[in-house]
Amino acid sequence: MGKVIVVTSGKGGVGKTTSTAALGAALASKGERVVVVDFDVGLRNLDLVMGAERRVVYDLINVIQGEAKLSQALIRDKRLETLFLLPASQTRDKDNLTPEGVERVISELRRVFDWVICDSPAGIESGATLAMRHADVAVVVTNPEVSSVRDSDRIIGLLDSKTVKAENGERMEKHLLLTRYDPNRAERGDMLKVDDVLEILSIPLIGIIPESMDVLRASNIGAPVTLADASSAPAQAYFDAARRLCGEPVPITVPGEKRSFLGKIFGRKAA
């Protein structure tokens, strides 16, 4: 039985889709069987980031409505043969995403894949609660700024109350993925510090992804950043996060921390 992960945030545009694709590809590159599922009905993006937009025939709603079989809707990645995409519908109404349908699809996917990674839409409406509903693990994507942190806090509250795990009295495993971390802005004090975010959200940190042009470049060529340029800083950070998801103890480094440390020494000498 595979693990179901929800990548969620509350706030929009923080990097959920980027992270879903990057983590999915990182896990699949180790030979794990992975499916990334787009829950953002009406605003689908994951197909673009995965570079599969021209190969979408059937989608999640078609499967839920019984208009297509799961095997017909799954799109195999061209680069990694254990990586699949289940796209969202761009045209259908999101009311077609029924709780029963989602439950059936997720349990089918769980049987076939090692990892089922659900890319949640922003917000706290039914799309987001359905995406998290059957998860075993949540990756809470947060940017180091106040509104994103508060929305993540709200989402954590929902993860602890509105999911099947919570309703069964079990604990949902939750991990914080801090994305778009800009060392320069952190140095200037324009962003919340890592420690402050951790103190507010009090869930374990699974990785810090630096703000980087490599992410935009990757999405422009339609590839998860971990496949587009595996040696880039954000890709490395996602690979490390994927290893931590598998339970490997990999130490976390704060991007730019070394430089800022050196900077302080030099600053003092100059003074």
Binding site: D153, R154, I156, G157, D160
Partner: peptide, 8 residues
């Protein structure tokens, strides 16, 4: 015994 989250 746990944090009270935003919205709770």
């Amino acid at each position: 015994r746990e944090p009270i989250r935003s919205g709770q």
